[in-house]
């Protein structure tokens, strides 16, 4: 005799619940939340990361890329785990001269289209501010973190940290304009059978970036 369809559905639901309870829900969101300003407005491009304990890295970090397209660093913000190598290809026809004076990583790369500059290894935790020696408005940030567990907030200020094993973690939030140090934003969160939700409030400093130039007077 054939069983009714709802019986199978019920069995599947039971199995899903069992997997979630035992923490075997691989790929399911572990922690989600939002980053807002004190006024409740969403803060995009904030980085939320596991500050402690630092889970052991499962494998060597994959190489990353900061491209140069239309006289802009793409992406403008790249969070990476310490030990990651980053390449800086130039897809503009013009010359760029990428540099960083940041104590976390000091380097410079004269780049021209068609040239493959060697990758740069980021072996120290911290912030690396990159710029172009020719186009002064080009600015980018590489945030070197001690953990591979991080997420960047979207335009609505939302983030999702996935694949955390059950346990208690300290999360911190960073933003380029934040008036708070990440340590001052730290929050403890319990990751377990229930989906954890965290809200960070970051007061941001006002900034006036150098206006970009896209017209024919932009070359020098």
């Amino acid at each position: 005799m054939r069983r009714p369809l709802y019986v199978y559905r019920y069995k599947l639901l039971q199995l899903a619940l069992l997997l979630c309870v035992t923490g075997v829900c691989v790929g399911a969101p572990s922690v989600s939340g939002t980053v807002t300003g004190p006024d409740g407005k969403a803060v995009a491009d904030a980085v939320v990361f596991v500050q402690a304990p630092v889970p052991p890295a499962a494998k060597a970090p994959a190489g990353q890329i900061v491209d140069q397209i239309d006289k802009t660093f793409v992406p403008g913000l790249l969070p990476i785990v310490v030990g990651t190598s980053v390449r800086f290809p130039n897809h503009d026809q013009i010359h760029h001269h990428v540099y960083s004076f940041s104590p976390t990583k000091t380097f410079e790369l004269p780049l021209y289209k068609g040239e493959e500059a060697p990758a740069v290894l980021f072996d120290k935790v911290g912030v690396v501010k990159i710029g172009c020696n020719i186009h002064d408005w080009m600015a980018g940030i590489i945030l070197v973190l001690p953990t591979a567990h991080f997420a960047v907030t979207d335009a609505a200020g939302r983030f999702v940290l996935e694949d955390l094993a059950a346990g208690t973690y300290t999360l911190a939030a960073w933003h380029a304009l934040s008036k708070l140090k990440p340590e001052d934003t730290a929050q403890s969160v319990e990751v377990g059978r229930d989906a954890a939700n965290v809200t960070f409030k970051l007061p941001l400093a006002a900034a006036r970036p150098r206006p970009a130039m896209h017209g024919s007077r932009a070359e020098p």
Binding site: V125, G126, V127, W174, E183, P209, R210
Partner: peptide, 16 residues
């Protein structure tokens, strides 16, 4: 260690 995430804010005036 606490200062490692500090980022100098861009100045609105620059000199070359």
């Amino acid at each position: 260690a606490q200062a490692q995430y500090d980022l100098e804010q861009p100045s609105s005036v620059w000199l070359r």
